[in-house]
Write a protein that binds this DNA or RNA. Structure first.
Lengths: 113, 113
DNA sequence: TAATCAATTCGATAGTTATCGAAATGTCGA
DNA sequence: TCGACATTTCGATAACTATCGAATTGATTA
């Protein structure tokens, strides 16, 4: 709730991630079904209907709803509600920011550590 | 055990991550204390002693040992055992590979999703 | 050998969460 | 309004795991 409510800011210039937000993102990504769901959304190019998502994962509707909520809470996706249907899309910049954060940790190599 | 035993390969050219390994990495990173530990190791430049690590985190020795084992099992760090002391260092290429994987999911933007 | 220190293992506990079926809510068409 | 359908909420359960203190293992030094 907090993460998605909080203004996430722009997309183009690697947004800052607080410790809490970084942890929330990693936890959201650390579940296999959730990651696969996110992959589907990403690869779809355009917003994915829940029915499509449902077909791709071997889980119940209740569980899918739970995961969608988690992804939204982490600020990874946006949900466009159109009557009966909900459409899922990636929130731009977030994955990039996390990737940048991880890459920035990479070592410059210590000769014979 | 499996992830660290399994040959992880080189560092320079983004190694392949299986689904299972990807999940293991994300789970390892998703714990705040563990992430902070990894950050310390990364920023240390050269192998970090456990005592140093211990000072940086508000956890018991037993818990630290547990986290170190998890990081090693995920293949994120290497442990050089030198008598009584253990020294921790980043395994090169792993964070980069994960970062690349995440960045690759980023959307090319769908006009008016 | 005995004492000391680093690190691990053990056993237990508390908190978290993925999962489901069933019930509820909300939307649309007949 | 009624029924069909999409999604969510509820309540319960099972599995996982972060955490600790205590006991253990292993290495160094007196």
């Amino acid at each position: 709730m907090s993460a998605s409510t909080q203004a996430v800011g722009n997309a183009t210039r690697s947004l800052r991630l607080t410790r809490a937000r970084r942890t929330a993102l990693l936890k959201a990504l650390a579940d296999p079904h959730r990651f696969e769901l996110l992959e589907r959304i990403a690869k779809a190019g355009c917003p994915l209907g829940c029915a499509e998502a449902r077909k791709a994962l071997p889980i119940s509707a209740a569980t899918l709803s739970h995961h969608v909520k988690e992804l939204e809470a982490a600020g990874l996706i946006e949900i466009r509600r159109e009557g009966k249907f909900h459409y899922l899309s990636l929130r731009p910049g977030v994955l990039e920011a996390l990737a940048a954060l991880l890459a920035a940790l990479a070592p410059s190599a210590c000769p014979r550590g």
